[in-house]
Simulated assay, not measured.
Amino acid sequence: MLGLTRLRSAIRVRTSMGHSAAVAMSSMPLDSPCPVKANTDCTESGVHCVKTCTRVRQMCQSCPVNDWKEFGSYLRDCRLQAGLTIDQVASSVGLSSSLVGKVERGERVCQRSTARALEDLYGTSGALLDRWTRTQARSNDPTWSRQATECEPKASDIKQFHAMLLPGVLQTAAYARATFHDGRPGEDMESVISARCSRLAALTATLSFVVPEHVLRTRVGGAQVMSEQLNHIVKLIEAERIVLQVLPAETPTLAGLAGHFRLFSFKDRLPMAYAEHVSGGVLIDDPSELHRLGVLWGTLTAFAYDPSRSTEMIREAEREYRLAEEQLQPTLR
């Protein structure tokens, strides 16, 4: 194992914090102090640290490179179970043996057309394509975002504030599609959208949200998209799946300017938080920072409308969007 001094030197040499540094860090015990300077970005693994981060190794191992290595290993197992050689597979699917080998080693991304051909060849009854879809979704999703989404299924309580949009876990496909259309134009984001919209079903945590009033009034994707989105949220509230409070537009507190963040509580580990910024995010386990965000959350909920009044506001906004869409329809005929 690298000594801490040597490891720091290795990291300083690779100032871009590429995958090699992440691999070096993965040899450290999880309870070792993080050698990365606070707020330094691991551009390939998506790691951001605040003071002492004991979870760096786990985060480094979540990079997209490892996703395709795992998928490639799965393809190799399928090939061996089918009793085929790499040359035989390459001939069957119309690829070079070298490329098939690189896909199995995770050195090349497997294209959907190749996954379909391998699905037919190995006869996995849809399992291979399903695994490809999930791998593709994970590799497309920004790794800094995945740090938080991977915490979600393990949490017992999640509190989230988003200053500009409805939180991703609550978004409908149409709403998410509209945000990606403007935020990441030209990219095929369908697999990411599918993964985002399926996150809620995997959560067992108590879910609480605060959103500013203007988020309800911001047309994302048009009146119909907003009507369907707000109706979806109302149904979640009525089913007691979530608690959502609306922060009034005319509020005396400036706490809503602090930015987007999530607080995670667990039954079997210490709490964590995740704060987002324009180009990434920060995973936080420092007690003083957690306390500060907890106080901030308390301020937001104190100044927000109570859940009952907030729900009525959402219903009212949904009706307005629905009426606007109905009035628009005759002009389109």
Rank of each mutant, 00 (worst) to 15 (best):
S198W: 01
H214F: 03
C34R: 11
R219Q: 14
L166H: 07
S96G: 12
F71K: 00
P248S: 05
E250C: 10
A223K: 11
P35F: 14
K51S: 06
Q58F: 00
T299V: 11
C53V: 01
E187V: 09
T43Q: 14
Y122A: 06
G259L: 06
Q245M: 07
V246C: 00
A115R: 04
T149Y: 15
Q329E: 14
S208H: 13
K69S: 02
T251Y: 12
V243A: 07
R196V: 04
W68A: 02
T311V: 06
L296Y: 13
R76T: 08
D141G: 04
R219N: 08
D306Q: 05
E213Q: 14
D268R: 12
K69F: 04
H232P: 03
V192M: 10
R105H: 12
E187D: 11
Q229A: 05
L236Y: 06
L203G: 12
Q224G: 08
A10Q: 06
L257P: 08
R108V: 02
T135R: 08
H291P: 01
N231R: 08
T172N: 03
T179L: 13
F261G: 05
A163I: 06
V225E: 05
P287L: 07
Q245V: 03
L128M: 05
V100P: 09
Q61M: 15
L84P: 12
E44S: 11
F180K: 01
Q224R: 15
A82L: 10
V50I: 12
S45H: 15
R76M: 13
A173N: 05
I86Q: 13
P271K: 04
T218S: 11
A258P: 03
